[in-house]
Design a protein around this nucleic acid. Structure first.
Lengths: 132, 132
DNA sequence: ACTAGAAATAGTAATCATTATCATTATTAG
DNA sequence: CTAATAATGATAATGATTACTATTTCTAGT
């Protein structure tokens, strides 16, 4: 947290990053675990969680909190927003640029320092609108 | 959820609503529990959770998910946003009106139906900026 | 007021995602 | 090569929240 402890490589972490980069659907820790087990059968779920937490703290990936539901993870660290489907739970990108204006507006209303915001859109994904 | 099952009053629920209305700091379920115990010593934590969930589903109060941290609750159901302090964890109001434009903008970028968004500001509250 | 049916409760167990622990293994700087 | 230490796997622990169940409390309709 405070300072960079030198990071040793591990094939587990390499596999996690590599896998995340192949996916655009923002998998959960458990999905990552299930997938990596195909190549590293005895990887531990704790190892997956530890690495995902570590990588997101270092800013190498994004942790997407989803309003009380399970966290998802994104290897695309460019600032953008996300959508979660209230029916199937899938998470998709919303490519609006990060709205700094929001922080500015909020700062005018607020006695303190606003450094960021998190914004999550909700509704029905295209698949779920059709199967209704 | 689907339809209104007639709601019976209970002094536990009355106390929970009444307490929430006296507070502007958006207490957690546990805070509500601790407080109500002063007047109803044997109230159950499960009862508090059940009622808070029920009331927020009926739209009588707001549940505030806070990015993986503990949920907070708000008796002020007027649409507005919130701020959470990264230091002390307090939750405060941000009185920007609900930005429907955000949903519209997002809808243009998105193949599906966007019904709402949740937006949480983060940073340091006024108390924590001073004690740094 | 009485009563039957339904909702609410207290107490407790269960869930579930996530984190912590710890003995062992793997990585890497020198 | 080797010592120092980060990372792992296996498992236990945590913590917020929900589910269960026998009992109590409401309340609508006689």
């Amino acid at each position: 947290m405070s300072d960079k402890v030198t990071m040793k490589r591990s094939r587990q972490r390499d596999a996690i990053i590599a896998f995340l980069k192949t996916r655009k659907d923002h998998p959960t820790a458990d999905i990552v675990y299930q997938e990596i087990r195909n190549t590293i059968p005895n990887i531990s779920l704790g190892t997956v969680y530890r690495n995902l937490a570590q990588l997101s703290e270092r800013g190498e990936i994004l942790r997407l909190p989803c309003d009380g539901k399970v966290d998802h993870f994104d290897a695309d660290i460019r600032p953008h927003y996300h959508f979660i489907c209230n029916q199937c739970g899938c998470v998709k990108d919303i490519h609006l640029p990060y709205a700094n204006m929001l922080d500015q507006q909020a700062s005018e209303e607020f006695d303190g320092i606003i450094t960021k915001h998190s914004l999550l859109f909700e509704g029905l994904c295209s698949d779920c609108t059709q199967s209704e």
